[in-house]
Write a protein that binds this DNA or RNA. Structure first.
Lengths: 211, 211
DNA sequence: GTCTATAGGCAGATAGAC
DNA sequence: GTCTATCTGCCTATAGAC
């Protein structure tokens, strides 16, 4: 009586789910309509109905990923923690992706940048810019709180954090060793907060800075 | 009377040169015998004569790249500089690649890792391990010299340096902005060397050292 | 060593039935 | 919305002449 669907999620979303997984593990060039169709047990023609071509599907992929990421950053902001706490949460986002043996979608697409259609390129750049802006804001907060100590500007440190985490995923994933990612992240934070690993902060983060 | 070749370099080396450039800009999946043959103005069949298949060509590519990199590291060692000087030279290797709008070959292949033939995977892993070992050695030297201050172990810091530089290339290349790479590298080094380190600091960006 | 020619497969994409 | 069937093009790879 009830026309139950194969899945609660609609077909477009399920297509994006499958495509996203393939792109994050094998890359955009190595992803094909055939592989996604096989996984969803539908035909390539059905995929083309929902997404006319690879370029459009790729764009939808980044758009959804970017929106999800921005939501996650907004949620971290809403938690109103200290800068180091926010950084830890930010690192957790990356660690979560890596724990599924996946690369950051935009990190993967950055490697393939020269082969991407124009609209996809623009969205990849936007993703990086958004992340840098958010990180810069958090670092500024950390300076006000006296919980972060930088010897260079917040902008350069923001680029470093983004680069280090993307790079740590890139390097750690082939090694099949999430610990490698954790080690890099810990050393990164240590260089920004002046914290000794395994020891209490020499200058405890302002317990609840104004904001 | 002298059977002059088209180039001083032999055909196998010229094939590797062209293939390397394509892989470092577009990726291994997007590289084809046809594109390399067109660039060298020979046929695909001639390429197959020198390298039976894509897997063999790819392996030769990493082998040559890895050997060249190891030679560069040995040259830095031979210079007998301080640890910060060696790190700067190491960063210069990456900057040189990026200045040609190219990604590190092994960084690119790391993104595509899941699609690579087994022998290529092994060489990519070897490259990362070699780099980490070398960096760890330099960091140990820096501790002995008192020119490097780490708040975490040398191993974790070595992974961070490798990750940050690979990631900085990954992020900076799409932006078409080498300055972004420099900013990340500067912030990275700043986090590893104290402002009040024994060695003269050519760029005391933020001279208010706390430790 | 390099060529022409071609095999065989898989890619992205479309037309039209249901 | 999903299907079958098909088109076109590019891919890796091989056979055999020169």
């Amino acid at each position: 009586m009830i026309p139950r669907q194969v899945s609660r999620r609609g077909t477009p979303a399920r297509i994006l789910d499958a495509a996203e997984r393939v792109v994050q593990t094998r890359g955009f060039a190595s992803f094909s309509y055939a592989s996604v169709a096989a996984e969803l047990q539908i035909t390539k023609a059905a995929l083309h109905y929902h997404y006319p071509g690879k370029a459009e599907l790729g764009l939808a992929l980044i758009a959804r990923y970017g929106a999800r990421f921005r939501d996650a950053l907004a949620a971290i902001d809403a938690s109103a923690g200290t800068a180091p706490e926010k950084l830890d949460a930010y690192i957790g986002l990356y660690a979560g992706v890596l724990s599924e043996q996946k690369m950051c979608l935009c990190g993967m697409l950055a490697a393939e940048f020269d082969t991407l259609p124009g609209p996809m390129r623009a969205e990849v750049l936007r993703f990086f810019e958004d992340n840098e802006r958010w990180l810069e804001k958090v670092l500024d907060q950390g300076i006000r709180e006296n919980s972060v100590r930088m010897r260079t500007g917040a902008q350069a440190s923001a680029v470093l954090i983004l680069s280090a985490l993307e790079g740590a995923m890139l390097v750690a994933r082939p090694c099949g060793n999430p610990e490698k990612f954790r080690a890099a992240a810990t050393a990164l934070v240590a260089g920004l907060t002046g914290a000794n690993a395994g020891e209490p902060d020499p200058a405890p983060a302002a317990s609840r800075a104004r904001r």
